[in-house]
């Protein structure tokens, strides 16, 4: 079984934010939430780099460990998903996540949180694949349709890679070899400890 991973090649990302827009549109993400965002380091200075970031679908996910109602599950593909029916909106997953992936719609003007929302690797949730209920809560289930996450599929510079970790690693390794020493990938070592290349 493939182990799904995201990888953003910081040498290629041009901060066009197309992945952010595509994700919002494809999954009809709730107002005020960006499942994916582009962060620019050293903006306007030497060494500027941009990185597109969303849930990294961690191997040993902190969000999963901390959730008081234990509503996360990891699919056979290594995708970290959760049930919005069980979530109580406590916010703990957001405190634990290294990448700031979990987000909350404001449920009342009192500041209380609604059900947590995060990137699903375009893999929906616990409901039946591509059912109306699944789409309404989690967005499109592209994996069930045999497609990869839209953000990566439509990335113009192919900076954002998504898919089978082995293939992603191979693609990236080829790039590193042709580019030479000095090109580092963002987030890989953090989200997939002990898995420097493919598996």
């Amino acid at each position: 079984m493939a182990r799904m991973k995201f990888l953003c090649d910081a040498e290629r990302c041009i901060e066009c934010n197309a992945c952010v827009t595509a994700c919002k549109n494809e999954n009809e993400v709730p107002w005020g939430i960006n499942r994916r965002r582009v962060v620019t380091i050293n903006d306007g200075k030497p060494g500027e780099r941009s990185i597109s970031v969303a849930c990294m679908h961690c191997s040993d996910a902190p969000c999963m460990a901390v959730c008081p109602v234990d509503c996360f599950y990891q699919t056979d593909d290594g995708v970290v998903l959760h049930s919005k029916d069980l979530c109580i909106g406590c916010g703990y997953c957001f405190y634990a996540c290294p990448f700031g992936a979990p987000q909350f719609p404001q449920a009342s003007n009192f500041g209380s949180r609604g059900k947590m929302d995060k990137c699903t690797f375009c893999a929906g949730g616990p409901e039946d694949d591509n059912s109306a209920a699944e789409f309404q809560k989690y967005g499109r289930n592209r994996l069930a349709e045999g497609k990869l996450p839209l953000c990566a599929e439509m990335c113009a510079t192919k900076a954002l890679l998504a898919g089978d970790g082995d293939k992603v690693a191979d693609t990236y390794r080829e790039r590193v070899v042709s580019r030479g020493f000095g090109s580092g990938a963002w987030g890989w070592g953090r989200a997939y400890p002990g898995q420097s290349g493919g598996r």
């Binding site: 970031v53 290294p98 700031g100 963002w186 953090r190």
Partner: peptide, 13 residues
């Protein structure tokens, strides 16, 4: 959201 990685979350958890 400009913070890319907050490693403290793991220790907090």
């Amino acid at each position: 959201a400009g913070v890319l990685i907050q490693s403290a979350g793991d220790s907090w958890m």
